[in-house]
Amino acid sequence: MRQVIEQLSVFLENQPGRLAHLCRTLGDAGVNMRALMVADTQEFGVVRIICDRPLTGKVVLEEAGFGVSVAGVFGVEVPDKPGGLADVLEALGTEGINVEYAYCFVEPGMTGAVDVLKVDDDRAREVLESAGYRVLRPSDLYEPDKGD
């Protein structure tokens, strides 16, 4: 896990105020979010969060009664130009590597955007790096913590 970005995945029922409660819980604990993405179905959603202190985030959310799991994802720095993300995905696609889901955010201080990829294939890092992309390490986004 040390080489991948730790993303929090939270199971949420579709109910008014539930996402707000989740964000407030993180905020009160001083956890700062970098990115948040909601995958929803008719009845429930999975909220995926990149934050500065994932272990603390997991602990405080669980204390508040949320179901939380930690998923390892790749963060790739993508050039800020048309077709930038398409190039990244094509590099994986030609190697037969499937992307489960993806979303982007902008990290202050970086030249490009950060694309978050969930890939269940050990070759992904190697393929991306040999295609010339920078695969982020956890320390690029947050100081790994011990959940206080």
């Binding site: 995945s9 995958a39 999975v46 669980e62 179901g67 799991s69 998923a71 489960e100």
Partner: peptide, 12 residues
């Protein structure tokens, strides 16, 4: 509570 919630496909 200890389920891996990450993928919607798996939850479905």
């Amino acid at each position: 509570p200890d389920l891996a919630f990450d993928e919607v496909r798996e939850l479905e």
